[in-house]
């Protein structure tokens, strides 16, 4: 599974765990993260789940902190740091 699909599938798992619903038709690159259905607790959980599944957390790897606004930026972060994991 590529990273984007992995993120989408984990996203959906976290949605159901946090009793939330997707607020947009689908997760697109320009979907604003905090308006997509997950609240900040949901995002925190998503980042934590992804760390467990993918084996890295881009948020602790980046030198310059970035807080992504859109789903596209979020996916890009994971793609960027994919090769830097140990």
């Amino acid at each position: 599974m590529d990273i984007r699909n992995h993120i989408i599938s984990t996203y959906n798992e976290v949605l159901s765990y946090t009793d939330a619903e997707l607020q947009v038709e689908e997760l697109a690159n320009d979907t604003v993260l905090l308006e997509s259905g997950l609240d900040s607790l949901g995002f925190a959980t998503l980042v934590a789940e992804l760390e467990e599944e993918l084996g890295y957390d881009p948020f602790v790897m980046m030198d310059e902190p970035i807080y992504p606004t859109t789903f596209g930026e979020f996916v890009e972060l994971y793609e960027t740091y994919k090769d830097e994991k140990n």
């Binding site: 934590a48 957390d57 602790v60």
Partner: peptide, 10 residues
């Protein structure tokens, strides 16, 4: 608690 970059801890 486990450190988390968004909520401080989970």
């Amino acid at each position: 608690g486990k450190a988390n970059p968004i909520m401080g801890n989970l």
